[in-house]
C-alpha cells in the first residue's frame, strides 16, 4: 500500500489518509479482506500521531470501507459495505447516463439499448 501525506496542504492529515485508503478500496487496489497496517505502524511510517491514524480508520469504518477485529487489526470490508456501495451505485448511474446520451445521439431505440445493457451484464457475469 502506498500512502503519503502533505503537511502543507490545507487538507487535514486524517482526511488525506481517509481519501487515499478509500480510493484504494474503490479502485480495487485494496481487496476485500486485505489487512491494513495497524494504526500504530502507520503512524510510525508517516511520522504522525496515532490519534490521526486512528481517526482516519474510525471514519473509514463508519462509512463501511473497513472493519476492525479486536486484537487482530483492520481489514478491507466486503464490497457490499455501506458508503462503498453508495459510491459504486452513483458511479454506475453516472456511466449509464453517459451511455443513454450516446444512445440518444445515435438514435438507438430503447429495446436495443436494454439488450445491449443485458449483454454487458451477462458477459461480465461470465468473467
Amino acid at each position: 500500500m502506498n500512502i503519503s501525506i502533505n503537511n502543507t496542504s490545507g487538507v487535514s492529515l486524517y482526511e488525506q489518509i481517509y481519501e487515499q485508503i478509500k480510493n484504494a478500496v474503490l479502485s480495487g487496489e485494496l481487496k476485500s479482506g486485505d489487512a491494513l497496517p495497524t494504526i500504530r505502524s502507520l503512524a510510525k511510517d508517516l511520522r504522525i500521531s496515532v490519534i490521526t491514524t486512528s481517526r482516519a480508520y474510525d471514519e473509514l469504518e463508519k462509512d463501511g470501507f473497513i472493519y476492525s477485529v479486536v486484537g487482530k487489526g483492520s481489514f478491507v470490508a466486503a464490497k457490499g459495505g455501506g458508503k462503498a456501495l453508495e459510491e459504486h451505485l452513483r458511479k454506475m448511474e453516472e456511466y449509464l447516463a453517459k451511455a443513454a446520451k450516446l444512445a440518444a445521439y445515435c438514435n438507438v431505440d430503447e429495446n436495443t439499448f436494454i439488450t445491449a445493457a443485458r449483454n454487458a451484464l451477462g458477459s461480465d457475469n461470465e468473467k
Partner: peptide
C-alpha cells in the same frame, strides 16, 4: 524519533517528552 515510535508500537507504553524543538514534537506527539 524512530526509536520512540518503535517504543510506542506497544499500546501499553507512554512517553512524556519535554522539548523546545517543536518540529520534533509536532510529528510524534498525541
Amino acid at each position: 524519533l524512530d526509536i520512540l515510535y518503535d517504543f510506542m508500537q506497544n499500546s501499553g507504553h507512554a512517553v512524556l517528552i519535554s522539548s523546545h524543538i517543536t518540529s520534533d514534537l509536532e510529528k510524534l506527539c498525541d
